[in-house]
Design a protein around this nucleic acid. Structure first.
Length: 275
DNA sequence: GCCCAGGGTGCGC
DNA sequence: GCGCACCATGGG
């Protein structure tokens, strides 16, 4: 059983962070959150400034939840009007998680044009069909499928996972990435715009999914994913310039210029406070 | 039956 | 480069 005691000024809200829709494999049972990250089962709870967990080392937990990022400074950097300010208050302690790149990529490929419960169901299906069985405290869990396993996945088994038309995208992108050694490091080194181009060259990864992956796996916080919720929120509350770019680029570029280098963080607060 | 959801692709213009 | 039909799937 590991423990981390947060400093008084080290703001963090585990509930908000895990339930805001950035990750899909966590569920809360009583006071405990239980989730699978890659091939590890992690159980964690928060009591005030204390995090208690099993299944991972303190350094993993720190890195996964990005506990050493200066959240107060990040929020201050984009807290520039009453509307976003309300969102930051409603979702106080929300941190952007650092997800494994492969898992994040496939997850957001599965997430297109779907609601969150559907995405969770798909990913759970993929894990059950193609992931390693992990026994944790007497219960079976399934790790996130590895690239080479998904590469050889047959269509009929894949169909069980209810991916719909995304199944073909998943097969192609899986093969591409399984053959592309060092793709993660390459993207990590590239600046935002170029990294985004590489991700968008993958089948089934468009502007929105690419931005999610850059934000949630690569810590490129200028990425500003625009889904239907964010599009509504942004056009409803902000004066988006009417240049000739596509609507996605209009909103996304405006947000970067307006909110600054942590625009993606602002997006997450807006998304979390959407209802 | 309809509309919607953390959209992407491929086409015609 | 932009707009638009189409794409499976389940829930409301």
């Amino acid at each position: 059983m590991g423990t981390i005691t947060l400093d008084r000024d080290q703001e963090f809200n585990l509930d908000t962070t895990l339930s805001c829709g950035q990750v899909f494999r966590w569920t809360k049972v009583g006071a405990w959150w239980c989730g699978v990250v890659g091939d590890r089962v992690l159980k964690i709870r928060q009591d005030g400034q204390t995090l208690t967990f099993t299944g991972a080392s303190p350094s993993f937990v720190r890195s996964y939840f990005q506990l050493d990022a200066d959240l107060a400074a990040i929020v201050r950097s984009f807290d520039r009007d009453p509307f976003i300010h309300t969102a930051t208050e409603r979702c106080r302690g929300l941190r952007i998680i650092r997800q494994p790149a492969w898992e994040c990529t496939i997850s957001y490929l599965c997430a297109t044009n779907s609601n969150i419960p559907m995405v969770r169901q798909r990913i759970e299906g993929l894990a059950r069909q193609f992931g390693r069985e992990l026994t944790f405290e007497g219960t079976s869990y399934f790790g996130f499928p590895r690239p080479h396993v998904l590469t050889s996945a047959c269509a009929t088994t894949l169909a069980v996972c209810k991916l719909g038309y995304r199944a073909a995208y998943l097969s192609e992108t899986t093969s591409t990435l399984a053959a592309a050694r060092g793709w993660e490091e390459k993207i990590r080194m590239l600046p935002y715009a170029e990294a985004r181009g590489v991700l968008m060259s993958l089948r089934g990864i468009g502007p929105k999914a690419a931005d999610c992956i850059l934000l949630f796996a690569f810590q490129k916080y200028e990425a500003f994913p625009v889904d239907v919720w964010i599009r509504r929120i942004m056009s409803g509350h902000y004066a988006i310039p009417r240049d000739v770019k596509s609507e996605y680029e209009r909103i996304s570029r405006f947000a970067r210029a307006y909110f600054g280098p942590f625009a993606g963080y602002a997006q997450e607060y807006l998304y979390c406070a959407r209802k």
